[in-house]
Amino acid sequence: MINEAAVERHSALAVETRLTVNGHAHTLYIEPWTSLLDLLRENLRLTGSKKGCDHGQCGACTVLLDGVRVNSCLCLAVMHDGAEVTTIEGLGGETHLSPMQQAFVDHDGYQCGYCTPGQICSAVGMLREGHVKTEADIREQLSGNLCRCGAYPNIVAAVKHVMTAAAAGEGGAQ
């Protein structure tokens, strides 16, 4: 549920900012000290993106900003006028999971689930970047996402599964 009224601020310093979040266009008046993460969680009520440190040290807040994975806690929302943001909610809902989300379920790539949306957004962004080939690459490239439950081996297995399936899919199409 999106409550745009809640986002409207009356501060003189608020800045008009257009954001497309999971395909929905918003025109918002945002105070410059509002992080993209807090905007998503508290104002747009998209609480799938998590706050684990608020300082770019854990990756729980990872979203895709114009398709690129970033720490939304370190983004000031006003700086992203015109941007497209994809959060975990935009990747797939509970009853229609995307392949990466389904792979995390199938490989038990989580425990408490709190770092999970960030892990999944990071993994999706990582595959788009196209720099990983080996398991060691995956581990390195997902090292910006802490998991205190220690689900790393299962996370790597989930990502490998998606990579393999994607490669097979491409091969089939050719």
Binding site: L46, T47, E94, T95, L97, Q101, V105, Y110, G113, T116
Partner: peptide, 19 residues
Amino acid sequence: VNRIDGPAKVSGAAKYAGE
């Protein structure tokens, strides 16, 4: 057995105390 709360966790639907 895959966790029955898994789909909620991977889709952001699982609600934690601050949500």
